[in-house]
Design a protein around this nucleic acid. Structure first.
Lengths: 400, 400
DNA sequence: CAATTTAATTTGCTTTTCGAATTTAAGTTG
DNA sequence: CAACTTAAATTCGAAAAGCAAATTAAATTG
């Protein structure tokens, strides 16, 4: 209805459905979407003609009768498009390349100078990284249909605007436009915390859930929320500052300048700081190593280290409980890559959180720990771009 | 599109648009909804024929040219339906009756026995209350097209299920069904905290915003959230337990049995408890009076009372800041009826909150204090029911 | 009062989708 | 193995819904 773009709407709907449900016969598509079989035939014919999906023979299953005309499965045509996703971190850019069906093609990691860069410099590094990534897979940068980019900081995803990022030496940069011009491809920018939620929604544990939150601990504490099957970003495109949620009035000093932030208790730098100032532990090594030292000391029974680590766990549990009390999600995903944060993902912490949520006669939300590799972020970025590429492809389909 | 109910969809859309924008000419409807003028004419003709809207002469305005054919305003036909809303509290039921256009017809308050009631008893009290309400306006209970009901406790609005409520002596009651059977009208049940958000969205400050949160302080601390123009309820229909958000590790004991809940610092009973235990103030009067005593003492310079009140303010600011950090809303509405809570709505508290949110190069969300009368809840309940009555009415329209 | 301006309606056409009938591709049966 | 059964997919004509353009309506202006 409205605007005469109805056909595009049903094409989009069916493409999404096929992408989500993997190989699926037409009759199931009709069933699930409520679109009539006749229309499914005609719309999928368009998608087939455009090369966005393909038919695959269906292997027979025991749970369905073998009589009658066999179903023909439809799936996304992997070769229709190439999508890249990347994340910029302190000292490197990690990238993945995937097909239109979300399957992995290649990944790559390239170092960049630490510290803040000019937008143009960063764009150049990204361009080179993409070129290297494409080459690894025997492709050219120009073969890529869309690039998702994750950046730490405050990002307005809708407008590709970076209010502030630790990677850039300027504020309020229209970095989406800068990148598009530098790369000559459609670029989709987002805050890195949202990317993990996106990755979970598209490829991970969130596939079968419509309302969940994802917490990540890296050096800061990040959060992404999926509400009603969609990533929720807040109104200024920058919400979900879970790490700067206050857990203690006038508490520990955070690097954001405020006091009592969750991050000031659970982040790596916080652990090290506490252990060395309160406990007199001498920790002059770089943060990442010092963290291991503290955690090891705690495990070995060092009283001070243990206090610090335990408090971090308690604060984390409290923050999590607050989120659950506010959102009442189906699922909480604790996503991370570093074993360092095992102490926060421990059963005791989760148990503590459970005790702090309001009880009702329904099970508490499921809490799962999901260990991803380093490519988690880049995959999320690619997943984000994939949605746009799908839409663009659908809109570009020509009529018969 | 999909399912051949397209026409219903555009009827619904236009009816909503007219309800929201008050009297509005067709050409503006076309403009705002993107529906063509031709279709607007035909759809509004259906709505007119069904008596859901009516034409009103438009008074001329200085800002539009007086030439040409004058616009004809359309507005909701107030007399098309009667909608009731009510809220059950400790000792009484408050009710309002409104027309299809949201205008006030009558209100009523009737006492009920304190303490928990059986579902059937409560249903009977509600039926009697509705009858009295209708009679006040010269109507009959049977004239009412829909009833919105707000209940404290944990409610699954979609299924009309009450998991637990202080008003009922049983758990897991399908109270929506019980009420519908007792009243013979469509009943829409919801948690009372959501109702205030609904009232703000429909009649209040939220009319022009799509993402906001509403905080209410009564004896507990409640919260409702509107995300993307829609009330968000969480997955179990019971989220938004802002009052039991933890603001202090192992802090003050809350009536929910846990420690450190926001409510345990800012609720009336908490203020009184602190002042009498810590400060030795002797407060044997009922809570509501004791609160006034404490607040007055604080204003008059009593050191103890002041400490208690100030801490409550700080905790409240901290809780608010956490919400803002997580949601990044456009607007925060502090809604309440009792002057008692002026101390929490004070400028200093709001200022403190502002200092605790993550800063970006964009203005912080607006914070407004909205004082409503006691009917706020009932109006929200009616607003909730109104949406359903609108939809039902649209679906019932017969084709020409 | 004719020209002008703007809103609303009507008309004829296009697009989109659907239901019913038909076709297709199997398995089953005698 | 020909006839039948079953079930998926397709085809085809019809209906629905919305739109653009043309027309009508109602006001002001000179």
């Amino acid at each position: 209805m409205v605007f005469g773009h109805q056909k595009i709407e049903s094409r989009r709907l069916l493409l999404r459905e096929i992408a989500q449900r993997g190989p699926v016969p037409r009759i199931d598509l009709a069933e699930h979407t409520g679109i009539s079989r006749a229309t499914v035939t005609s719309v999928t014919a368009d998608l087939l003609r455009g090369g966005l999906i393909e038919e695959v023979p269906r292997e027979s299953r025991s749970d369905e009768s073998a009589r009658g005309r066999p179903r023909v499965d439809l799936k996304i045509a992997g070769d229709a498009h190439l999508i890249a996703g990347l994340k910029v971190s302190d000292r490197s850019i990690s990238l993945v390349l995937m097909r239109f069906d979300g399957t992995h093609v290649a990944d790559h990691e390239c170092p960049i100078p630490t510290g803040r860069l000019t937008p143009d410099d960063l764009a150049t590094h990204i361009r080179d990284g993409l070129a290297a990534l494409a080459e690894k897979a025997g492709h050219d940068r120009g073969d890529i249909s869309g690039v998702g980019v994750g950046l730490a900081g405050v990002v307005d995803a809708d407008h590709g605007l970076v209010y502030w990022s630790p990677s850039l030496d300027q504020r309020n940069v229209p970095f989406g436009d800068v990148l598009r011009d530098a790369l000559g491809v459609a670029v989709y920018l987002d805050n890195d915390a949202n990317l993990v939620a996106m990755a979970e929604l598209t490829f991970g544990l969130g596939k079968s859930h419509s309302d969940f939150i994802v917490i990540t601990i890296e050096s800061g504490v990040g959060m992404g929320m999926v509400l009603g099957g969609q990533l929720y970003r807040g109104t200024r495109g920058c919400g979900a500052e879970f790490g700067h949620t206050k857990v203690h009035l006038d508490g520990a000093l955070c690097r954001c300048g405020q006091r009592g932030c969750l991050e000031a208790y659970v982040a790596d730098y916080a652990l090290v700081r506490e252990a060395s100032s309160v406990g007199g532990m001498s920790l002059t090594t770089p943060t990442s190593q010092a963290v291991s030292t503290v955690l090891k000391a705690a495990k070995d029974g060092d009283a001070t280290a243990r206090t610090v680590v335990e408090r971090a766990g308690k604060m984390f549990a409290m923050g999590l409980a607050n989120l659950v009390n506010i959102f009442d999600p189906e699922l909480v995903i604790l996503a991370g890559e570093q074993m360092q944060f095992d102490h926060l993902y421990a059963d005791t912490v989760i148990e503590e959180m459970r005790k702090s949520i309001v009880e009702i006669d329904k099970p508490a939300p499921e809490v799962v720990v999901h260990k991803w590799g380093n490519l988690m972020w880049a995959k999320g970025a690619a997943a984000y771009a994939l949605e746009f590429v799908q839409d663009t492809a659908v809109e570009a389909l020509e009529d018969a």
